[in-house]
Design a protein around this nucleic acid. Structure first.
Lengths: 329, 329
DNA sequence: GACCCTAGCTAAACCGGTTTATCTCCGGCT
DNA sequence: AGCCGGAGATAAACCGGTTTAGCTAGGGTC
């Protein structure tokens, strides 16, 4: 009734446990004839090695980890992460250990625990902070890790990243070409590295650009938009740091009777069903493919490859109905 | 440098491994003084038990599993699952082992493997089929499991469910009260149990109701809508099985010059940011809370509680701009 | 023929816990 | 005094693998 263990196979094949282990793992020390006999018995018994037991003797755990620091409620609306996870899965044969925690301290604690307990072979690091302790932690633990969506190189870690600086510049250029001069930005969390990157790109290509902080929720997007449109000289274009805030912003504009795009142009970062349906001009990147790329990188690092930085393709601006020429005057 | 093991604690406290194990797990067999000494040593050494090793001697694996059968690409748009996962996480202290596979066979194989390998303590079963082999499999494996979103009771398994039948009836009543007589439905996958439930509820409350099959993608929603609106006597109201198809349907209606809601009423199953923004009348349920409830149920079953069926609150119809009185004549 | 080397295998230790059998000591009862 | 019982602890087996040390038989070399 129970699943067969290595001992059952050894008994059935008339050899020792050790020989079975060597045979199954394709290592030298057994003859070809013994090996094939063992393999035959194993498959006929429907043998499946126990990852748990294997992990105990410091081998693979057959899983990789991902920790998300979020208030759980807010997570559900962020299609980005689910897309990312789906992409990761497409390139991994192993399982993904996923946990949502509410603080950075818990996150770090969790990584250490997982590693100490041999629960994972490696981890993805997302939402990189400006000065992120994880960048030092991973090499010190000797834990394979890949930074996902950071901005370039990070210490000794492998990294899969997109050029937020260049992307922001391209968005601003698009708006400038349409005649916009008063361009504003609704930013994401200031603690995140990519926010800082986008901030600096924005600051260096827009003179006197107004930046309002947001937190990726619809409420913050609406609030920021109301604030911007209530200014003495309101912007003629707003760039949002994610899709949810942009859609909320578009709604506020509609409520205030500000017509889009003739009076106000709106651009969203990260394309999604939401933008497609709201006909919002959006900076589109293939998040699924991004996740797949990250998974490939992590698998490589776990396999012993030396860490490399992979730059993702530059996000592409998909122009829809929400951006147009700046109003005259 | 390595993390301390139970052996280190035993040495430091001057007792045996076994005594440490008993002390740490709060079991009888050691004196209070020894127990407190062991606990002191353990915490001062920063001891963390290895789940891997513990799982090996048939104890808890400290993780639960969820397998999704989907083409990975399509998954990213389904906010439902991510909401659900976020909700589950909110009620679990353990990790979630998540894997996406492409066939039902792989799914079953994976459940068996996880259980045989002590990787999980229990699993969630989603997307229940009309005649689902998993319902028999779980009790035969002795694997704790909770059916999420099935329709009522399932064999010996615990279940957290919503009454799709009553919900569908309430939607139809809403439409009938508005004067609609030609009501159509764009269904989800026919192999899923809840689709069948909704089908039968729909059939018994709508005479001559047309049902078109969809697969939850925007494309299928658009196609179905075009088909329905092209009929000799097109419906005056359409009920969609998810938000993505409903939004796509609304767009098709707009393209065809069919005005919503004066000529066509639209109702979506499962509310989301998408519906909120598209001002679609939607059947709203708190997916996050649903996931949390499922997690509580699974934790209870793992803890040895006898399986029970928990009925979720009836989804509530949130009336927005997309449903209105039937056109006269 | 003595010696060494190696392929092929076994037995046993090990990973880090849990669990069971056993052993000792002490107090209470008759 | 002798017996029993239970508390408190230990040693050892066990979970299912991997890995290492050691044994044996056969072949090559001088």
């Amino acid at each position: 009734m129970k699943r067969p263990t290595i001992k059952d196979i050894a008994a059935a094949a008339g050899v020792s446990k050790g020989a079975v282990s060597l045979a199954l793992n394709g290592r030298s020390g057994v003859s070809e004839s013994t090996r094939s006999r063992v393999l035959g018995v194993a498959s006929s018994l429907g043998y499946r090695p126990s990852v748990t037991a294997r992990a105990l003797s410091s081998a693979s755990a057959d899983a990789v980890g991902l920790v998300l620091v979020r208030p759980p409620r807010a997570l559900g609306d962020e299609a980005f992460f689910f897309q990312l996870i789906a992409g990761m899965q497409s390139e991994m044969s192993c399982a993904l250990l996923l946990q949502v925690v509410s603080s950075r301290e818990e996150e770090i604690e969790l990584y250490q625990r997982w590693w100490a307990e041999h629960r994972v072979d490696g981890v993805f690091l997302v939402d990189l902070l400006v000065s992120d302790p994880r960048v030092e932690l991973m090499p010190s633990l000797g834990m394979p890790a890949v930074v996902v969506g950071g901005a370039g190189h990070h210490g000794e870690l492998a990294s899969v990243w997109a050029d937020d600086y260049a992307a922001m510049t391209s968005v601003v250029e698009h708006l400038k070409a349409l005649g916009h001069r008063r361009i504003a930005r609704v930013a994401g969390l200031a603690s995140l590295l990519h926010t800082v990157r986008r901030d600096s790109a924005f600051a260096s290509s827009v003179v006197d650009g107004v930046v309002v902080a947001g937190d990726y929720t619809a409420e913050s997007g609406a609030r920021a938009t109301r604030e911007l449109l209530g200014m003495a000289e309101p912007p003629t274009a707003i760039v949002y740091d994610n899709d949810v805030m942009a859609v909320a912003g578009a709604e506020v504009a509609a409520d205030l009777g500000v017509s889009v795009p003739s009076e106000l142009s709106i651009v969203a970062w990260d394309d999604s069903v939401l933008c497609q349906h709201g006909r919002l001009t959006a900076l589109s990147r293939d998040t699924f493919a991004f996740g797949a790329r990250a998974a490939r990188a992590l698998v490589a690092v776990i396999g012993g490859a030396s860490p490399t930085d992979v730059e993702d393709v530059l996000p592409e601006l998909v122009v829809r109905g929400s951006s147009g020429p700046a109003p005259v005057g």
